[in-house]
Design a protein around this nucleic acid. Structure first.
Lengths: 333, 333
DNA sequence: TTGAAAGCGCTACCAG
DNA sequence: CTGGTAGCGCTTTCAA
C-alpha cells in the first residue's frame, strides 16, 4: 500500500497526498479531507524508509551506550530521548555491552541510517573508530573519550575531583586499608578514575594501601569483586566502587559474610543513581549529572537546525558532587 | 557518497558493487578486491533506507515496552535482542512510559519502518490499537493483552497462580491485614493480578482485610505507595507488591519509619529481577521467566523466514515460580 | 562474471 | 491550489 494508491482512491496526485501527509498548508479543505478519508480507509502508513531517502535530511539522533543494565546509561539516554521527542526527533539506541565489535557494528548501523547526530556514551572507544567517526562529518558527541573539535563535541566529568572528595573523606575517618572495585573497562592502564585514586591516595594518605579487584559492570560483578578481595587477602576497611551498581553488589556480599556497613567496612559508590538511595545502607556516593550530560548531548547534536549557538565541537566539563549517606563511617580499629 | 561513486571509482557497475556488498558469491576475486578498496578509500557506508526500500523485506524486529526503567522489561528486551543478533536481525526499541499516546506513536513508527515483526510488551493496550495491529498483517506478539490468532501471538503468565502462592504463604504465616501496592496501569478494574488477589484472599482467608495503594512504577512509586498506606490507616502486617521494583521502594519507606521487615511487616515482590536478590532484606517474590518470554517472542516473529514450525497465532502461557527469601515472616501479634 | 535498467515509495521543484 | 516528474540510493531481473 503506497502513496499512489491513496492518490488514486482519492482522485488526486501523489504530490497532493504528500502535502496532506506533511501538513503543507496549501491544500483545499475539501481535497484534504477526501485524502484523509482514503488514508484511514486504506489503513495507509507511509513508508519511512522512502521518506528519508527522498527527503534527504534526517530527524533521528543515535545514542550508543555501554550497558543499558546500568541505570547510569539509561538515565542519560532518557534525557536525550526526552529532548528529542520535544523537538520532533526520533532516537535510536544501541547497547554495546562493552564489546568494541558491538560498538563498531552499532556505529555502522547509525551511519547507515544517516542519523542527524550521534552520541557515543561508551568507554570502550578505540582509536580507529574515533577516526572513522571524525571523518564521517556527522555531528558526534563523545562522553569521556576522544578530543573536541570539528564535528566532535566532548562531554566529560571531572572524575578526579569526585575521587578526591571520597579519598579525603575516607582518610579523615581514619581509613588506611583501601580497596578499589572496578569493571574490566575501567581497568585499562590509563583509566582516569583508577589513576585519580592512586594519585590522590599518594597525596592525601601516602601510607594507606590500595588493593584492586574487577569484575563485570553489574550487581553480580560487584559481589564477585568483593568476594575476590576478601578471599585473597585481609579485609580492607573501606571499599571504593567505580559505580553505584557494583557498590550495591558489594553491599550484598559484605552482608552475607557478616560484615557490617559501615561499622566494619565503609563502601562508596559513584553516579548517584536512584538505587543508591534505596539500597541498604544508603550509599555515600558522587553525583554525576546524567540529565545535563543528556541535554548537552542533544543540544550539540541538533543544532544544524535553526538555533546554532554552536555547541558542536566544544568541550564540556561537569563537576561531580559528593553525597554523604550511610555507607561510610569511622575505620574499625 | 553512494554506490554509484564506488562503482565509478572501481570501474564497475553499481550492480557489481551491490553484489560485493551483499556477499553474492559470483564476483571474480580481482573485481571484488578492487571494489573493496574503493569502499574503504571512500569510507563508503551503504544507505540503509535505500536498501530497505529497494529490497522489500525487512530484517528488523520492533519491541515496545512500558517502562525501560523497570528491569523486567529490560530483561525481556535483552532476550529478544540476543536472539535477533544471533539470527542477523536488527532490533528497534520503544518505551511508552505507560502512555497510550506514546504507544500509538511507537506503533506507527514501527509500521512505518516496516518491521518484520513487532513485540508489544505493554499493559496500556487499547481496543482500537489492537485492531489496527491485527489488520496490519505484520506478525505481532502481545504480552498479557489481546487475543491469539491470525498474525497475533499471545504470551502470558499465569499471574493468578503466582498470587495464590503468595497469599497462601502469607495466610499460613498468620497474616490477616494485607495491603496491595500497584502502579496505576495495574489498577484498571479488570487487572488480573489485583483481581486474582481479591479472589484468592476470599478463598484462602476470607476474614483478612486488603487495602490498596498505587503510584508510579518505580522505586519512588513504591515508597510513596507505602507512605500513602501508612498515613491513611493502620499498618498492614503484609504488603504484596505488584513487582519487585516497587517492593524495593516499599522496603525503603518501611525502614525509614522504623518498621522492621519481616518482623513488623512482611513484603513480597513479583518478577524476581536481579535486584530482588540484592536488596535488603532479599525479597520473597514470584519468578517470571523473562528470557522465555523474549525467546518465544522472537521465535514467533521471525518465522516467516525459513523454519516456520508455526508459533505465530498461538497462545503461550508460562507458569510463575514462588521464591521465598527473607522479606516474609510470621505476622506480628 | 558483469552491465543495463526498471523500479521501491516518497519529496520537492516547476508548471499551470 | 494541484499535477507532473525527476530523482534519493539500492536491489534485482534480464541479457550479454
Amino acid at each position: 500500500m503506497s502513496l499512489e494508491e491513496v492518490a488514486k482512491r482519492s482522485g488526486v496526485s501523489t504530490a497532493t497526498v504528500s502535502r496532506v501527509l506533511n501538513g503543507v498548508d496549501v491544500v483545499k479543505h475539501s481535497t484534504r479531507s477526501r485524502v484523509m478519508t482514503a488514508i484511514t480507509e486504506l489503513k495507509y502508513h507511509p513508508n519511512l524508509h522512502a521518506r528519508s531517502l527522498a527527503g534527504g535530511r534526517s530527524r533521528t539522533i543515535g545514542v550508543i551506550v555501554s550497558n543499558l543494565d546500568n541505570p547510569f546509561f539509561l538515565d542519560v539516554y532518557r534525557a536525550v530521548e526526552s529532548d528529542c521527542h520535544a523537538q520532533g526527533y526520533e532516537v535510536l539506541v544501541a547497547n554495546t555491552a562493552y564489546k568494541s565489535e558491538q560498538l563498531v557494528a552499532s556505529i555502522r548501523l547509525m551511519i547507515g541510517r544517516r542519523v542527524a547526530g550521534l552520541a557515543a556514551i561508551v568507554s570502550e572507544m578505540e582509536h580507529d573508530i574515533v577516526e572513522e567517526l571524525t571523518e564521517s562529518r556527522i555531528p558526534i558527541v563523545f562522553y569521556d573519550v576522544g578530543t573536541a573539535g570539528g564535528n566532535i563535541t566532548k562531554i566529560r566529568v571531572n572524575y578526579r575531583k569526585g575521587v578526591e572528595r571520597i579519598v579525603e573523606y575516607l582518610a579523615a575517618l581514619g581509613h588506611e586499608q583501601l580497596a578499589f572495585i572496578g569493571h574490566h573497562a575501567v581497568l585499562a592502564p590509563l583509566d582516569e578514575r583508577r589513576q585519580a585514586l592512586f594519585d590522590t591516595v599518594k597525596l592525601v594518605c601516602p601510607h594507606a594501601s590500595v588493593r584492586v579487584a574487577a569484575d563485570s559492570d553489574s550487581l553480580e560483578g560487584g559481589r564477585q569483586a568483593v568476594r575476590e578481595l576478601l578471599t585473597s587477602g585481609p579485609a580492607p576497611t573501606a571499599i571504593i566502587c567505580v559505580n553505584d551498581l557494583m557498590a550495591v553488589g558489594a553491599l550484598k556480599e559484605l552482608r552475607e559474610r557478616g560484615l557490617r556497613v559501615p561499622e566494619d567496612v565503609s563502601v562508596t559508590g559513584f553516579d548517584n543513581i536512584k538505587l543508591s538511595e534505596f539500597c541498604y545502607p544508603a550509599l555515600t556516593t558522587v553525583h554525576i549529572p546524567r540529565d545535563r550530560i543528556g541535554h548537552t548531548s542533544f543540544t550539540s547534536l541538533a543544532q544544524g537546525d535553526a538555533d546554532s549557538a554552536g555547541a558542536l565541537g566544544k568541550e564540556f566539563v561537569f563537576d561531580p558532587e559528593f553525597v554523604v549517606r550511610d555507607s561510610t563511617g569511622a575505620a574499625r580499629k
